[in-house]
Design a protein around this nucleic acid. Sequence first.
DNA 1: ATCCCGAGGG
DNA 2: CCCTCTGGAT
Length: 211
Amino acid sequence: MKTSKKQKALKILTILKELYPDATCSLTYDSPVQLLVATILSAQCTDERVNKVTPELFARFPDAIALANADRETLETLIRSTGFYRNKAKNIQGACQKIVKDFNGKVPQTMEELLLLSGVARKTANVVLAHAFGINAGVTVDTHVKRLSQRLGLTKATDPVKIEKDLMPLLPQKDWENFSIRIIYHGRQICKARKPNCQDCQLAFLCPSSL
DNA sequence: ATCCCGAGGG
DNA sequence: CCCTCTGGAT
């Protein structure tokens, strides 16, 4: 009887917890709105680069009201180096305007409401819910979680939402974000997209893709 | 499926 | 040059 997918997922989680005991969200922020904005900025961009633009961004526009009323071109200039800067500026501003108008200036704390914000889909919503509010609503599936889940044989799906549905039943709900955050760490350091370092990978013995 | 888009690595 | 980075909207 081969190891079930669930046993495998738990094994992976255990190893990753030992490997990265202190792993946490690597975006810098001081409030739920700031985390939301930083997460929108992190699309197709390293967190390191996001953290280079957010200090000045948040110094000038610290909260939802300030961001909602910000001059669009100023916003675009401040976030330009993160890429997709026009869309991101529009989405940040649109999301903040809705937060001010419909949510009393506070970031909503449910998946359903977060998905109403411009530029926010499940990945961004999961990050905000988990790290700003301590709510495990789902598994954050970004490019790293997608790649490693596929390589490790936890899913064959390519659509992030489908991958999330494959992963959720494999893990205890309380560990959903623990899994994501550590998979991301491992993806950055060892299981890289281009040249995975299988020699140094602690998961290689259970990885069907190991070289 | 395609577009948005800059920066860094190989 | 090409690929990748905590995606989302059309």
